[in-house]
Write a protein that binds this DNA or RNA. Structure first.
Length: 495
RNA sequence: GGGCCGUUAGCUCAGUCGGUAGAGCAACAGACUUUUAAUCUGUGGGUCGCUGGUUCGACUCCAGCACGGCUCACCA
């Protein structure tokens, strides 16, 4: 028996044929529900007076989730987008002929519309007494089992619609994701930011250190790259005179998949003229607090994978060096020069690659020894210039970038900096990246002539930040895998 | 890409020492007008992920492959 034609599908197709044979349309499109199930329950859930309930005219639609048949009476549990509700179909109410030839051919999974009045069963459940019903869509495949639902992780991801039908918490999670994005957008707009859309297909990939996807445009006969970040385009808009812009959209990176990495993922990036990374720290803190409260009933403490995360501001602010001292047992002296850093790496059995400069070594040490320990929201600031090719140099120390990253739950959630608006310095940074690329670093940046030209027209002093939306959603929905917060995660094709 | 684990009916899962597979739900037939995962009686349903190998005999042991999960590496 092939997967496409198992016996249950055969039976359902036969039922469908019998229904059509009886002159009933199996896929009509003229039924309009009068109220949602939630509206019915909200309005009449407390009404005990049978005489009043019997006057409530009902017209609702839903998917049959359960059927309990007693021969001449059948209870069905319907579910729509808002709620679930029981309906009772009696043979003598809808007519013996239609009851036997059509209603008895319905299955769990079918969509139906019903009309009737309300009543309470003897167990007290608010129920629709059905006088007329119509089939809205016949399901040809059976739903997963009603007790355990769909547990197979692979099927849940590949057939997300099934996951959504039988696992209500999945629907709730994606509603929460929508609320998170909605709250971010609202907060940005409240603060005067303009939402924009910049290209997803880039002639030159830029704005991040990552490997891109390559595609080909036939009419232009040229390679295009799916964007790895919108950064350089958004800053062109600051050059163009917009002073506050943001974009919520997908980035694509041609790298490995894991519980925290999907090839396409969602970022919110924003840029604001006349601010710096210190002020951005306060704004990011404000923004995330707004979001957490919005989806967490006003509370700022979240449980994630068994760990309490407290978003109550102000959050810790540490330099990279301070973080190594506090969380990796380093001495301050060890963090200050190459010799100390190398000794620290040796102490922890870390390999030091020859191409790493001091800055790269410092960052590697941080990522290996500290990052996963930053469970409570923590800003890490003052990154080495060599690993921050788009960031402004510190006024007091030209080897340090005016940059911070936000860590929560051991993950990098945000990356922000005062933007480099000196076109000559930026050109030098691009040259350094190209040298790294020529030396074999596949993630190194390209030289973007037009971006340099844009800066040469003058970009006002600007601060910018990117926030990883998927990981934020993971934190706020207690998810351990990024695939749980992406509706259709990337999967290998199956023959 | 490496390591470990998994893949059995539509779904959720058992399967002993190597002797050609079971349960619950779902389905089908029947009974039943107040159930809540309704109940009761009966019936059907399997390329045991795929391909090889060992063996008289493989769901079971071995190898390769596919897909998935966890994890390491890379990254956000």
């Amino acid at each position: 028996m092939s997967k496409e034609e198992n016996s249950q599908v055969v039976v359902r197709k036969e039922k469908l044929a019998a229904i059509v044979q009886a002159g009933v349309s199996a896929y009509p499109n003229d039924f309009r529900p009068q109220q949602s199930l939630a509206q019915l329950l909200d309005t009449h859930g407390n009404q005990q007076d049978e005489a009043i309930l019997a006057t409530v005219s009902v017209r609702v639609a839903g998917r049959i989730m359960l059927l309990r048949s007693f021969g001449k009476l059948t209870f069905a549990t319907l579910r729509d987008a808002t709620s679930s509700m029981q309906v009772a179909v009696q043979r003598d109410e809808v007519g013996a002929d239609i009851y036997n030839t059509v209603f008895k051919k319905l299955d769990v999974g079918d969509w139906i519309g019903v009309e009737g009045f309300l009543f309470r069963t003897k167990t007290g459940e608010l129920t629709v007494r059905v006088q007329r019903f119509c089939l809205l869509a016949k399901a040809l495949r059976p739903l997963p089992e009603k007790w355990h639902g769909l547990e197979d992780i692979e099927t849940r991801y590949r057939q997300r619609y099934l996951d959504l039908i039988v696992n209500p918490e999945v629907r709730t999670l994606f509603q929460t994701r929508s609320k998170i994005v909605g709250r971010i957008r609202a907060t940005m707009e409240e603060n005067g930011f303009l939402e924009v859309e910049t290209p997803m297909m880039h002639p030159i990939p830029g704005g991040a250190v990552a490997r891109p996807f390559v595609t080909h445009h036939n009419a232009l006969d040229r390679e295009l790259y799916l964007r790895i970040a919108p950064e350089l385009y958004l800053k062109r808009l600051i050059v163009g005179g917009f002073e506050k812009v943001f974009e919520i959209n997908r980035n694509f990176r041609n790298e490995g998949l894991s519980t925290r990495h999907n090839p396409e993922f969602t970022m919110m990036e924003f840029y604001q003229a006349f601010t710096d990374y210190h002020e951005l720290m306060a704004f990011v803190e404000h923004l995330v607090v707004q979001v957490v409260q919005h989806v967490n009933e006003g509370r700022l403490v979240v449980e994630h994978q068994g760990v309490r995360i407290d978003f109550t501001p102000p959050w810790s602010r540490l330099t990279l060096q301070e973080a190594l001292v506090r969380h990796a047992g380093a001495t301050l002296a060890e963090t200050l020069d190459r010799q100390g850093l190398a000794a620290l790496a040796a102490k922890h059995g870390m390999e030091v690659k020859p191409e790493w400069d001091d800055g790269a070594l410092l960052l590697e040490l941080f990522e290996t020894l500290v990052e996963e320990k930053l469970i409570q929201p923590t800003f890490i600031k003052d990154y080495p210039i060599s690993v921050s090719p788009l960031s402004r140099r510190s006024t007091t120390n030209p080897e340090i970038a005016d940059r911070f990253e936000l860590f929560i739950g051991g993950w990098e959630i945000a990356n922000a900096f005062s933007e480099l608006n000196d076109p000559q310095d930026q050109a030098e940074r691009f040259h350094a990246q190209m040298q790294a690329k020529n030396a074999g670093n596949l993630e190194a940046m390209h030289f973007d002539d037009d971006y340099i030209r844009a800066l040469e027209y003058g970009m006002p002093p600007t601060g910018g930040a990117g926030i990883g939306i998927d990981r934020l959603v993971m934190l706020l929905t207690n998810s351990s895998a990024i695939r749980d917060v992406i509706l259709f995660p990337q999967m290998r094709s199956r023959d």
